[in-house]
Design a protein around this nucleic acid. Structure first.
Lengths: 219, 219
DNA sequence: TAGATTGTTAATCGATTAACAATC
DNA sequence: TAGATTGTTAATCGATTAACAATC
């Protein structure tokens, strides 16, 4: 019985802005700022001040003080709580290539509530080894492992051609959320959360933004 | 004199959908499909068919054929052209750690119009070496290199604490677009394009989506 | 106190969706 | 031809912004 309907709806667009606030607030805190106003945030982030206040109200109970602004520390706590950086979830990763190894050994994830517990690969030479202290198994053992550990998150860093097969394997074993780094469109059953990480798309957005900037006449 | 005002405005939201279409179309082509209808696309991507048609019209001149749908190959060509996968731009990368190396050796970028030509690092042991055939220099040489090669793109994969310094170095040398992987808020001069790659944010969005799915009652 | 800032209500703006004639 | 599908115009919906009273 989760609190479904009583928390106000938050749009994807608003959701995407939240982590930006967090990074900004960290910067402010590092600079020794105790309070920050929505006006200041909005200027530095090129946004509308009302939007900032609405966003902050949407995800936290922290209220600002007239004349002062918001308590930086309180906001950071509230946002980190909202984004789930406190809860710890376990994940497995399929595909222990260059990118898979990078993610396996990235220390930062634990700060963000994710613990990658094991890697899986098709390459028999990798099975039985470890990377950064994390065990690597044969991909054939993924299903058993996931069922046994009741793992909820799956990360896909296999080549594009293998991604759908791996996704099927994961969802079949009970994985409920997939973080996909392979540049393919995955078909998943309803009820499984999916987040695609598409480097090409990011890159394209960056160069389109650049084009827009350069296309814009000064006037 | 770029075609500024005559191309219709495309929103960020729409822009973010385009690469999804591309991946989907690649899948269709691989399956041997010659035509695909907006209805079919919309169903598989959980979107509105009118939105699909509008998006496609926004970025291409390809028109669909009543009863048949759109020519898959034509659409792929048009989208790849729009996203800039044809043009080739040169980039430098600052921070040759685990992630930096992964990006340096990722073969896929050339398909997407990006060519990383050199890496830069603070570590003097790395200077003078190569990775995947790409030269690595001391970070102190970045400015000269960028000026000499007129490099437009900069990729930041340094630790958070060093990211702003590196960004300043890049923009000072003439870099016009920054792809930032460090989890910090960067302050950049106007006219410089920025795309933040925030793993923590992606992760948070995934777990929030999962929470939403699990929170939703079946009815 | 005077004034900056918050938080909310109302107005605007833009994006999404519905309706439908045109087309192959 | 009949019918599926496109492309466009109009209606709806939601998000952003403007206005302003409340507050410290």
């Amino acid at each position: 019985m989760a609190n479904t309907k009583n928390e106000p709806h938050i749009s994807q667009a608003a959701l995407a802005r939240i982590p930006r606030y967090l990074l900004y607030l960290h910067k402010k805190r590092d600079q020794g700022e105790r309070y920050v106003s929505s006006t200041e945030i909005s200027q530095d982030l090129n946004r509308n001040p009302v939007q900032v206040r609405k966003d902050l109200a949407l995800i936290s109970k922290v209220s600002g003080k007239p004349k002062l602004g918001f308590d930086v520390g309180e906001l950071i706590d509230a946002i980190e709580g909202f984004l789930g950086y406190r809860r710890q979830s376990e994940a497995v990763i399929a595909g222990v290539g260059q990118l898979g190894k990078t993610l396996l050994s990235y220390p930062g994830f634990s700060d963000y509530g994710l613990k990658i517990t094991a890697g899986f690969d098709l390459n028999p030479k990798l099975a039985g080894t470890t990377h950064n202290g994390k065990p690597i198994y044969d991909i054939a053992d993924l299903s058993d492992y996931v069922k046994q550990h009741k793992t909820v998150f799956g990360v896909i860093t296999v080549p594009a051609a293998a991604a759908q097969t791996v996704a099927d394997l994961m969802t079949g074993a009970g994985i409920r959320a997939i973080w996909n780094f392979a540049p393919v469109h995955l078909s998943l059953p309803d009820g499984v959360a999916l987040k695609n990480e598409n480097m090409a798309a990011s890159l394209a957005m960056l160069s389109l933004r650049l084009r827009a900037l350069e296309g814009d006449d000064p006037q």
